[in-house]
């Protein structure tokens, strides 16, 4: 369903068609996506139109390689901090020594 919405907004009816599910089931699924703030549902005349919330997708894509990346990249920065600390320590030693 999200795959379909990634191509653009779609009506609930349009989203029901490709699935072998009742519109009621689809509506329930959409309600979940709306609650999870992944999809925005708006009324357009008699039809409800669903749109993917771009921020939600962006967050997930930003974090697609999340946990390991968090640590690897934090370690990169930690390395810079440690090197800086080392330099400062050497300077302090010279001052006091």
């Amino acid at each position: 369903m999200i795959e379909r919405l990634s191509h653009g907004p779609a009506s609930v009816h349009g989203l029901t068609e490709p699935f072998a599910l009742s519109q009621q089931m689809i509506s329930k699924h959409i309600a979940c996506l709306v609650r999870a703030r992944i999809v925005i549902k708006t009324k357009c005349g008699r039809e409800s139109v669903c749109t993917l919330r771009p921020e939600a997708i962006k967050t997930v894509s930003d974090w697609a390689f999340n946990y390991r990346r968090f640590w690897e990249e934090s370690f990169d920065k930690l390395e810079i901090v440690v090197n800086q600390m080392k330099k400062e320590e050497v300077r302090d030693d010279r001052k006091h020594g």
């Binding site: 999200i2 795959e3 390991r68």
Partner: peptide, 19 residues
């Protein structure tokens, strides 16, 4: 799995799984 740069569809699949 999450360590690889993945295609858009895979990301979307993951959201679908979360949902």
């Amino acid at each position: 799995n999450s360590g690889q740069l993945e295609g858009w569809n895979q990301i979307l699949d993951k959201i679908a799984a979360v949902v």
